[in-house]
Design a protein around this nucleic acid. Structure first.
Length: 704
DNA sequence: TTGCCTCGAGATCA
DNA sequence: CTCGAGGCAA
């Protein structure tokens, strides 16, 4: 488990040693070790003729790691110590943030900025008539990837992505390669623990250079600096050091470790700079909202000349004391706001309006666009929400339209260039209106629009489009979580008629799957196994899986808490459902209607007939779990000659809840080596995967 | 919604 | 080598 001994060892060094302080003997030994390890890597990977035992190899490697830790200047970017073996076994580990990494509220225009100021003035309860204004620190809002860096006693020990705000991915090994992240804080008296937050960006010049290099190597250039930066952080194998070396970290907050005498955000920025971090140079202090708006406009005018991409201005209340008074909501602090630049717009041709059929049968118009770059990505689709929207904006096929990415993500049609219609016609585009289809585009059934509703629906409950969406939903994470049942597989299953109603997934057999496109033995087995696992589920998951309108995680839990079993729910009267705290009339109606429907009841019964079992609401304790599933979640690889046929060994493992795969990867937990094992054992030792002999396997199977 | 990364497995070629 | 799935970020 050589996860990261480097940083731990390093804390023992008394002070940073510049290159000159490194004893010649150490330098020589590092070179020697590196050469030796590299030679062995080649022997091992390319000629399969290793000279060193794995233990010896490991020892050399450890020695190298230790030396590099002691003399960081000797750590070459291409050192064999940086190879994959140094990485965590399974992707990146996740780790909790020291305090939640919140996001920021947005202001899209001046009014919202003024509202922000008004809100804080009110909350801070300034004495009437006082001339106090609020000092706001202004910083560019960098368009990159947010990270948290942890320093203990001034040493960089851990770096996390933002993740969900509570927990992030530990990308320390990659961040250690970013030049602007100091290994040590420049401070005589660093805090015990400091948490620095900031943005990882890829400066435009580096982005261009990187892409030129990539094109030269016949690699695909990156679409935009932000994705290139975020992607760089998540590299695991064959890590491209050039990429990491071109990243830049810019600090903007100190979430922990603030010395008491620093009581303003502006001072913290200075402190971070003193500690050795890069701080955006375009920092200002604004006294009141008018200055803030002015700052924002000036920054916008400089935008094109800046070395990094930005998408707005962040304003923070300068005084920490005031920040603390204001506090934070669940999602974002009340003392800061991101004033966004107007979204980039682009013009393109609307080539077609299609209608998608959703899970409930609702027909949603989607604009198919001539692909156009906007905000760093190529957009070719945009939702049009509903028919009213199309009519209000008078959108017609063939129109030139203006699009933008709302909230930076969802593309939307802003308006039609009505003034360009003449030209459009001249170019032969037909400018047809697209009305709501009378028949479903997928199954050709009648469509209906209920009185007072905005949406039109396909009336056919068995419409394949609805079935596909329902099936996708059933297989999704929060529902039955069936691995390997993605969009394409769902399409196949429905189109071949293998699944005509939801419960059919549980009637699938391996034999009927093989023969489908890209569905050979292994995939079929895996899918069947995933479905088998899904048979044992819980009532809330099943309720979610059914796709009852308005029933998500929360409602499913509420229903389960109240009725405990499916039978209980089926027997419940609409009144009882409606009486549940947290369930209003709309939801109650939807649930009761579903449960009363005879075909739904039949379908539910069929789930049971096909082996779907609901576990008790909450397992009392872990000790009550069935001991037979002892290998749950473990992956095995078999190699060499075993005393029983492979197939049988495989069955035994699977019966105990384990998984058997063909090749060794970091996801493999155990390699079972029989007589005359193959190269898999070598690979396993290299990846640090545990190797079992047959006795060891027997032990696992019979034990506990 | 798009782009990036990883993984397992299928398809293809030698 | 290519594809599908899954996860993550904005």
């Amino acid at each position: 488990m050589p996860a990261r001994p480097r940083t731990k060892r390093a804390t023992k060094t008394k002070k940073d040693l510049s290159a000159a302080d490194v004893p010649e003997s150490a330098r020589a030994r590092v070179m020697e070790l590196s050469d030796e390890l590299r030679r062995h890597d080649v022997l091992y990977f390319q000629s399969d003729a290793p000279e060193l035992s794995d233990a010896d190899y490991d020892a050399l490697r450890r020695e190298l790691v230790a030396l590099e830790a002691e003399y960081p200047s000797l750590l070459a970017p291409d050192s064999p110590s940086q190879r994959v073996g140094a990485l965590p076994a399974e992707g990146f580990e996740t780790a909790p943030h020291r305090s939640p990494m919140l996001s920021l509220d947005n202001a899209m225009n001046e009014d919202e900025m003024r509202a922000f100021e008004a809100r804080i003035v009110k909350l801070l309860e300034f004495p009437k008539g006082g001339s106090q204004r609020i000092d706001l620190v202004a910083e560019p809002k960098l368009d990159g990837s947010g990270v948290e860096l942890i320093y203990t006693k001034g040493r960089f020990v851990q770096g996390l992505t933002r993740g969900n705000g509570q927990t992030g991915e530990d990308v320390t090994v990659n961040l250690q390669r970013v030049p602007s992240i100091p290994t040590r804080l420049k401070s005589d008296d660093p805090p015990e623990i400091a948490s620095i937050r900031g943005e990882i960006v890829l400066p435009l010049a580096a982005f261009e250079a990187l892409n030129t290099a990539r094109v030269g190597r016949e690699q695909k250039p990156f679409e935009n600096p932000r994705n290139a930066a975020a992607g760089s952080l998540r590299q695991i194998h064959n890590v491209d050091f050039e990429r990491l070396g071109s990243l830049e970290f810019r600090g903007y907050a100190l979430a922990e470790g603030r010395p008491a005498e620093f009581d303003r955000q502006s001072e913290i920025l200075d402190l971070l700079r003193d500690w050795g971090f890069v701080i955006s140079p375009q920092i200002g202090i604004c006294h009141g909202v008018d200055e803030a708006i002015h700052f924002h406009e000036r920054l916008l005018s400089q935008r094109g000349n800046l070395p990094v991409e930005i998408d707005g201005t962040v304003f923070k209340v300068d005084r920490i004391e005031q920040q603390e008074t204001l506090g934070a909501l669940a999602r974002a602090p009340r003392w800061a706001i991101a004033f966004k630049f107007p979204p980039e717009q682009a013009e393109t041709v609307l080539e077609e309006i299609e209608f998608q059929v959703g899970r409930t049968g609702a027909l949603t118009p989607v604009a198919r666009l001539r692909p156009v770059r906007v905000g760093g990505v190529t957009v070719s689709n945009a939702s049009l929400h509903n028919q009213d929207e199309i009519e209000r904006k008078d959108i017609r096929i063939g129109d030139r339209i203006v699009i933008q990415r709302a909230g930076d993500v969802i593309p939307q049609v802003v308006r039609v260039r009505l003034d360009r219609r003449k030209e459009a016609l001249a170019e032969g585009r037909r400018l047809a209106r697209r009305g709501l289809p009378a028949r479903c585009p997928v199954c050709e059934s009648q469509t209906v629009r209920l009185e007072g509703e905005a949406v039109t629906r396909c009336a056919n409950l068995d419409c394949p489009a609805q079935l596909k969406n329902n099936l996708r939903h059933l297989a999704s994470r929060s529902a039955l979580d069936i691995d390997g049942l993605g969009e394409k597989r769902v399409d196949q299953l429905v189109e071949t008629g293998l699944v005509a109603q939801l419960s059919d997934v549980f009637a699938l057999e391996e034999a009927s799957l093989t023969g489908l496109e890209r569905m050979a033995e292994k995939s079929a087995t895996n899918l069947i196994a995933a479905i088998e696992r899904a048979r044992q589920t819980t009532l809330p998951r099943l309720l979610i899986a059914l796709g009852i309108r308005h029933v998500g995680e929360t409602v499913a839990e509420l229903l389960t808490d109240r009725f405990e079993t499916l039978e209980g729910l089926l027997a419940a009267s609409p009144k009882e459902v409606a009486a549940i705290e947290g369930i209003g009339p709309t939801i109650a109606e939807s649930v009761s209607r579903f449960m009363a429907d005879p075909s739904n009841r039949k379908e539910l019964a069929r789930f049971g007939e096909l082996g779907v079992v609901l576990a008790a609401p909450r397992p009392k304790s872990a000790s009550e779990e069935t001991p037979r599933q002892s290998l749950e979640g473990l992956t095995f690889v078999l190699t060499g000659t075993l005393s029983r046929p492979r197939g049988e060994a495989k069955r035994l493992i699977e019966a105990a809840g384990g998984k058997v795969t063909g090749s060794v990867s970091r996801k493999t937990n155990f390699v079972v080596a029989g007589k005359d094992p193959g190269s898999k054992v070598k690979k396993a030792t290299d990846l640090g995967v545990e190797i079992l002999d047959e006795a060891g396997l027997e032990g696992l199977l019979t034990d506990d």
